[in-house]
């Protein structure tokens, strides 16, 4: 398929996912942290599309193959829709915090402790 191997896409997906995870762990601004989570979700989308395109499993019939193709692509649509809903809620929460204290740094959120 145009010479780009499956492993290249999966590798790129893994790289993006790892970058996202590392970003979530080390960054301190909730908006940047959330951007890193979006990066993880985009890695997921890329992986889904790759598996849908390259079809590794064997199928009993053409219909099964097409259903599998559609399942992977539909998943991507749903992930994007859910990510959009999460952005709406997340930015709302960050706004509410900003109104209370003019600062959204995660390290300074330490009201709750044992």
């Amino acid at each position: 398929m145009n010479g780009v191997p499956l492993a290249a896409y999966i590798g790129l997906g893994m790289f993006m996912f790892t970058t996202g995870v590392v970003g979530v762990v080390i960054r301190r601004n909730p908006i940047v942290v959330f951007m890193c989570i979006e990066l993880m979700l985009n890695a997921v989308n890329l992986t889904f599309l790759t598996f849908a395109r390259y079809q590794m499993a064997t199928y009993k019939s053409q219909v099964h193959m097409e259903q599998s193709l559609m399942a992977g692509q539909m998943m991507v649509i749903f992930v994007m829709a859910v990510a959009a809903a999460e952005v709406a809620v997340g930015l709302g929460i960050i706004m509410a915090i900003y109104r209370l204290r003019d600062n959204v740094d995660i390290d300074e959120m330490n009201v709750l402790r044992g």
Partner: peptide, 18 residues
């Protein structure tokens, strides 16, 4: 959710189904 989804994507890759 990111981890869960990434896991789902590999299960999908292996089985070709959700």
């Amino acid at each position: 959710s990111g981890f869960l989804l990434y896991g789902i994507s590999f299960v999908y890759g292996a089985t070709g189904s959700l």
